[in-house]
Design a protein around this nucleic acid. Structure first.
Lengths: 214, 214
DNA sequence: AAGTAAGTCGTACTTAGTACGAAGACTTGG
DNA sequence: CCAAGTCTTCGTACTAAGTACGACTTACTT
């Protein structure tokens, strides 16, 4: 029964915060719940974090740090593709991240490094400055937007899509939303349907288009 | 001085909620501030709205209602393009909307109608069911993702980009983020730079790619 | 041993959502 | 025209959350 509950530290606080958010969502991450998870009292946290806002900024930067950096100088298409798959995986692992990114506007070091690498590979791939801007905007709009859509799907991501589709379908009269009904019954309800599987299709379509446009 | 402060109504409550969110952000929209704006007391609102969650759901559906519906049967490319420009305009007008869409998962009637029309034009344009799914996913990922990026830019949208870029640049040593520095100084800081202008470029690139892929 | 700095926390104030039920206003059958 | 509802509105109060303030506790220094 010795107390392995050693001293607090910024590191431990951040780790615990991520764990809570991963497990129960951003809403469950309060200064009180965070303190409880660390067997401490709320006010103790303020020695490692100025306020909750700063905590959230730190979480966002931590998420960017998890994303694979593209290798500057490598084949731009391959590197960007790898990075995008990684980004999607990371954002899926931390479903709360996207909501945060939207709000926070002061990028941390990992975030800046990340952008720097992306700009680097694109420039290295022969894109002009304006074209780099276009490409990066399109790519990230797609990646973030796709994850955003997944997040706002009424179902979790598995194949419970079927049930949800059914329950929604029931709610409206026969002819109300004909195309939605067709889509739900003849596509979504098919075995093997999985929204997330469309990610690479779109990504490759966009990368191809960018390769041609450059 | 007569009292034009007529009866409350769900309509009036929703309108006032949108006004508050537009003006001061989602954070400023509380049951208390909303009541105050209507010259009423907080608890009066609960006669028109079950709880705040339902209020937010209603706001989201209202936003979808504002987006131009594509005309089913028309030229899919033109109709989808128009709808996307409208969607972006609406989301720009209500910067809080995107954050909400992310959370709410029970679509309202306007939302369903919207999706129905989009699926309709795509199907009418000759897309197969799987291809329709791909196309819609890509298009909305792009539109929502682009708006999301705009929202998380550290600057408001005007050309204050320059100042922000400067202030960030100052923060790091010479060689820390070379590509970011090049990008900021040689592109962002140029006169006439405006992130939002890239929207149509990417949209057309994606629509072209979809047209070819179909 | 005493001083000092670092870390921890008790207390309390503020803002938010909303349950409960009373009080006023308006409607309607007699 | 009145009594009995019914519809709106709101007063009060409880709970959850962020965090300011300052005290207490410990560990390390000299």
């Amino acid at each position: 029964m010795g107390e392995p509950v050693r001293q607090l530290s910024r590191e431990r606080v951040l780790r615990a915060a991520v764990a809570i958010a991963d497990a129960d969502g951003l809403g469950a991450l309060t200064m009180r719940s965070l303190a409880a998870a660390l067997h401490a009292k709320p006010m103790s946290l303020y020695h490692y974090i100025r306020n909750k806002d700063e905590l959230l900024d730190a979480l966002v930067d931590g998420v960017f740090a998890e994303i694979d950096l593209p290798e500057v100088g490598g084949d731009w298409r391959a590197e960007v593709r790898r990075r995008c798959l990684s980004a999607r995986a990371v954002l899926a692992r931390h479903p709360w991240a996207l909501a945060l990114v939207e709000t926070r506007t002061s990028p941390g070091p990992a975030t800046l490094r990340h952008h720097d690498s992306m700009l680097g590979v694109l420039r290295g791939g022969g894109f002009s400055l304006p074209m780099t801007a276009h490409a990066y905007a399109i790519i990230d709009a797609y990646v973030f937007g796709f994850v955003l859509q997944e997040a706002s799907l009424p179902f979790d991501g598995g194949d419970s899509a079927t049930e949800v589709a059914d329950s929604i379908m029931e709610r409206f009269a026969a002819g109300d939303y004909p195309h939605l009904v067709e889509f739900a019954t003849r596509h979504v309800r098919q075995p093997g349907y999985h929204f997330g599987g469309q990610f690479t299709f779109g990504l490759d379509l966009i990368l191809d288009a960018l390769a041609n446009a450059s």
